[in-house]
Each structure stands twice: as structure tokens, then as C-alpha cells.
Amino acid sequence: MTRKMNWEPYLLLLPSFFYLIFFFGWPMLQAFSLALRGEDGGWTLAHIQRMVNDTFFREAVITTIALIVAILPIQFLVALAMALVVNARPRGAGLFLYFYAVPLAISDLAAGIVWFAIFTQRGYLNTILQAIGLIEKPIIFLNYQKPLWVLMAIVIAEVWRATAIIMVILVAGLQSIPNDYLEAAEIFGAGLFERVTQIILPLLRPSLQVALILRTILAFQAFAVVVALAGQGATVLAKEAYKWYTDIRNPHVAAAYAGLIMVLSIATTVFYLRTLRTPEEVSL
């Protein structure tokens, strides 16, 4: 029916479209091609086998997943607390919001170094613990012999750094919940706990889902924090990919790791979307 086709929007989209084809779509295919093809160009599972049989593979997979399992619940609790505090409009709410949001712009490397300064043997944590008399001599937290301590340090650093993004998403979600609902709930006798569990959390579901997906994807890429805090002491998938590419100089196995991270990410996203389907529509 339309007499004329308007090409303007397509022209405006074209540069982005091609950019993403060249620098997103194509490298993605390239990653699988690198991982699944030999030097002769034929298909092979050799690189995958090499990755799987590597000494560090098991540890990398387990550590990556263990970190996600340990970090996400804490992050969501802290982020929810921050979001509820900001939403309750304390004095200086704007300032608090700024403080809570600052880590949004802090790199994982910087965060790793910051917490290294705290956890290192002659660091601030030992200084404080000794000052208040809890310990007599410094504890070596970041010790290869105590992988649990190292993981704990990584968890804390990641919670510190990456909670802000969840907080911002939740605050935005909270602001879209009309105050009427909460006031109505209060009139009908709901206390703070009931209001959070009965009204706020169900209505925040879309925001929680988005935050969960974003955070999990990012957690699969955890890298610099681990390098800064654990050195050679612990490893994760992205660190292995980096090692295989730069140190061992085998882009095929590195690409296999990249492919694995990609597959895991997509699988989790699909899993979240299916299990946490929001009543109205899925809004990623």
C-alpha cells in the first residue's frame, strides 16, 4: 500500500550493521573455525582434546563456575540492599548513589590490585586485624597452599567491583514501581519484609533477570582480578585462553577456550530466559 519506501533509517543503521558483522559476527565464526580446524584446513577435534586434557582445564572450569556460584548471591544481596537504601531516600541519597556506583567505572585489573594491597601479607587487612588484636602476626592470605583463601579474596574483590552494575539496574527497576503499590501494601498491613518479598521482588523480576544474565556473562570472562590476586595460584577459563594465546602461542587451543566461554554464556542465558520467564514478556 505504501507508495514510497523510506530508506533513511536503513542508511543510518548500515554502518553499525557492517561493523558488527565484521567485528562481531565474523570473529565468532572464526573462533569456531580456529578451534575446530587443523593446520591443513580439515575439521578436527584435536584442539578441543588438547584443551580438555590439559592439566589446568579441570581447575579452570571448576574455579570459574565456583566463583559464579559464590559471587552472584552475595552480589545480589548487597546490590538489593544498596538499591533499597537509595530508593528509601536517605539524606544525601545522591551522594550515596554516587559512592555505590563508583565501582561501575573501575577496571577489574585496578580492583584486583586494590584488593591485593589489602590481602597481601604486609597489607592493610593484616594491619587492621593486628591493630585490634585479633592476630599476633600477619596471615598469608594469598597462599598457593590455601586455594580457598585465594578464592575468597577473589570473591570479595569481585563483589566489591561488580555489584554496582546490578545496583544501578535494580534502582532503575525500583523507580519504575509506583509508590502507590507499596503504600497500598502498607495500608493492608505489610511490614518491610513483606513489602520486599511480596511486592518489590516480584515486580523487580525483569530487572533481576537482566542483571543476572549480564553478571553471569561477565563472570565467565573473569580474568584480571584473578591474575592480580592469585598470580599463578589459581586459574579461570579466560586466564587459560590468554595463557594459551600469549605464552604457549597456540591460537587454536585459545580459540577453543573462547568457544567454550561463548557456549557456556549462551547456554546460561537461554537457561535463565527459560527458567525465569517473566509473566508478560522476556525483556533482556
Partner: peptide, 11 residues
């Protein structure tokens, strides 16, 4: 956003 884009730096 569901893709780990930085990982694509390897290929």
C-alpha cells in the same frame, strides 16, 4: 550482550 565479546579478540 549475551555474548562475551572480549573473548572474540583471540580470533
Amino acid at each position: 550482550r549475551a555474548f562475551p565479546i572480549v573473548i572474540l579478540s583471540i580470533p
